[in-house]
Design a protein around this nucleic acid. Structure first.
Lengths: 189, 189
DNA sequence: CGAGGCCTTGACCGCGGTCAATGCCCGTGG
DNA sequence: CCACGGGCATTGACCGCGGTCAAGGCCTCG
């Protein structure tokens, strides 16, 4: 249950058994079925999750009620609606299980207690913020500087694993294009 | 010269005079003229800047060689190409002075030395990462879930100060639309 | 003054969205 | 075991949002 998170931590920081156990003790296992909503926009995001297994779609609803994907999350990474999580205010995004999920959940208070108390945990948090921010910046760049075809090419070259694991519909909404357009472009490449 | 940064720090953390002076001693003043490039994509981003005065455009070049704006930065905030700054590898973005600039620059090594040595500085860095990431996430949401008109409206409602301070051309490239389209939409609102 | 850049407006066009039809896959129940 | 239904992928036809091109006016700065 905690094996993956243990490996994750040990791969990133030096941690004695006691600190590690202390950190792990603040997480509790959570499961979700395919299609289940982990977070519904409008609700407060009470937890930060470490993903043991599965795939999650983070999305907005556009004016037509269609899902507009902000990001995907897979095993070995974290997921939370940071703004909602930090300030415990209503979330603007929703999380949906695209596959059966095994997660480890930690509450806001416990999370920041660990950040204060365990320097290694603060370090992991900092590195994650840096990485998440850097990825977001790249993604913004793709929207302001590329057209639909260039973004599809970019996905093929930089995130090919997404193509094999996710539905066309999900990928299209991630690229900000319609499923039909993605289908046509795949046929042309 | 250091007044604004001093105020900025004091407003965010408790810091004795000695720590504060220690932090400030790692920054050096930099000026730039309107139109000057602070960073050219392909070069390594050697500094993180605190903006005392002025406005900066962070942009990519699209396939036509036009500027595609990832973000704007004004006095009282930080600017760096984080990925390039951390790993000292070539930057994908460029920075341009839209107004005469007064900056305070700190090198990568000094920056992370302060993060390690001064808890208050680490805290400010963490809060900034959280805020920057949160803003980026919102911006990605605007691209996947809104059309051009909705993004213009969003700008009017959430960032009206941009409209008075920046050229239409710059704002259009920030919204991912052409200057002509922005001009037409402004006429209709 | 003149040159260059920006804003605005009009005319045109093409990328990509929408709508609809078809076929496939797969889960569910008779 | 097969029939049925729902969701997704694909393809074609059509259309509209927004980009491109061009012209004219204005402002700034050399």
């Amino acid at each position: 249950m905690f094996q993956r998170l243990t490996d994750y931590i040990r791969a990133r920081v030096e941690a004695d058994d006691e600190s590690l156990a202390f950190v792990l003790s603040h997480f509790k296992p959570v499961k979700a079925r395919r299609g289940e909503l982990l977070l519904n926009f409008g609700d407060v995001c009470r937890y930060c999750y470490f993903t043991n297994k599965g795939a999650i779609q983070i999305f907005y609803l556009d004016k037509n009620g269609d899902e507009a994907t902000r990001d995907f999350v897979f095993e070995g990474t974290w997921v939370t609606e940071l703004s909602s999580f930090i300030h415990q205010k209503p979330a603007k995004e929703s999380f949906k299980a695209l596959e059966p999920l095994e997660l480890l959940a930690i509450s806001r208070d416990n999370f920041f207690k660990l950040v204060e108390a365990v320097p290694q945990f603060a370090h992991i948090y900092q590195k994650n913020l840096e990485l998440s921010y850097t990825r977001s910046v790249e993604r913004i760049g793709s929207f302001v500087s590329m057209d639909a075809e260039q973004r599809v090419r970019w996905l093929y070259e930089n995130q090919p694993h997404l193509l094999t694991r996710l539905s066309n519909k999900a990928i299209a909404s991630y690229l900000g294009i319609s499923p039909e357009t993605l289908s046509r472009m795949k046929a042309r490449l």
